[in-house]
Design a binder for these strands. Sequence first.
DNA 1: CGGCACTTTTAACTTGGATCAATGCGTTCG
DNA 2: CGAACGCATTGATCCAAGTTAAAAGTGCCG
Lengths: 242, 242
Amino acid sequence: MPANLASALITKLAVSNHLDGEDIRAIQSLRIRERHLGAREIIVADGVRPGECCLIVEGFAFRSKTTANGERQVLSLHIPGDIPDLQSLHLGIMDHDLVSLSPCTLGFISHAELTEVTARHPHLAAALWRETLIDGSIFREWIVNVGRRAALQRMAHLLIEVHERLEAIGRTRGGEFSLPITQIDLGDCLGLSVVHTNRTLQVLRGERLVETDKSGFNLLDKERLKELAGFDRTYLHLTPSG
Amino acid sequence: MPANLASALITKLAVSNHLDGEDIRAIQSLRIRERHLGAREIIVADGVRPGECCLIVEGFAFRSKTTANGERQVLSLHIPGDIPDLQSLHLGIMDHDLVSLSPCTLGFISHAELTEVTARHPHLAAALWRETLIDGSIFREWIVNVGRRAALQRMAHLLIEVHERLEAIGRTRGGEFSLPITQIDLGDCLGLSVVHTNRTLQVLRGERLVETDKSGFNLLDKERLKELAGFDRTYLHLTPSG
DNA sequence: CGGCACTTTTAACTTGGATCAATGCGTTCG
DNA sequence: CGAACGCATTGATCCAAGTTAAAAGTGCCG
């Protein structure tokens, strides 16, 4: 199997888990089907019962839900090494959409294969369980974000979160990181209208806290952003012990 | 061990999982330490590393987070049979508070005991994993709720959710259910101020959709409420297959 | 019984963010 | 190349929900 597909997963899991040689060999032996997608394609749709899980090897994806009256809310952003639909292994039916944000390289792993490898490697199973729990922890912080923070704090919090997560897998250069997201989608992450998303970004730019271009962000003063957002990284569980 | 402690867990797990005789015996053999708490007591605090998990046997609890500038957001409501801090088994450090909403009977199970029983009973381990995944699914719906629904829809959605969950464990009488929550805490669930929470409840009462007293709610027209809220129960995963 | 503490309710006023509408701008594509 | 589309930006207006303050209700405890 191509080492590069599995290595995204290994790098990501190693952020929050102790992996031993056996775990790594087990991951490397997984049969992973490679697939390439353009931006804004539905990877797995709400309501379906997938037979495989999707590993993000390169690029970005998001999960989202659309309400009865057509409003969309983004639930999470996903980076290389994430398996955003890992829950489908045990929940069966998808209760939301999984969509590519940018052009992506994806690796699909069948449920059967995952079930078998986790049965044989309880330690790896625990690492995957832990990943879904960290997912849950990030969901909780997003509830706080949309529920109790004002637009400016909310935006700052999200940008710091993504920076921290990308930094942990070695995909930042100082405050810079790639995230080719439109203001429309950013607004849907934050529960804001596009217009207000734009105005909020302008305040962050005006304060010399953030620079943006269409491919990503540059956090110019992360300390001040953290203070503004009231950011506490505990919820990201970025060490194997926490 | 007292059968009544374990039976809350068995009833709850059976809602979303197939349990066989062996699973049930394994649950019944758990050493569960009983404890009684009054209302509004912190069960597990943000930042600590618990050595045990907390099963709700009787009563209600909630998880919450407080932002840097003192605003509180409730993250989830928990009912008998829930283990709201099951994630502490794998995440170690608590990233939020767990608090009793009403006077509660709780059952504490040590991490060591849980680790051992899940190692010996993979099927039970899967059931518990599934419970944490359903938790995650509910978190996602709460993100949508606070991010994209107006106050009235938001309130209706929450009340239906709690009703559905309580109905699944046999704790409703028609549209009625016990949930002794103040409007302050209800507002913190919904990301609303107390004043607006009160106004919103009054609209639901005025429309003859909901009756309230201090111990609970009565949903007078659940169909109309569901339509108002745009409620789709898929996310609750209330059957072992979905 | 009477007073303190907390919750619910009402009213008046303010505001953050939504909505509506238009313009500019960069890409893609016929 | 020019049209068309999607995204970013700006300005004007509106409104849902927040804030503040105070009154009214509900225990609970001494």
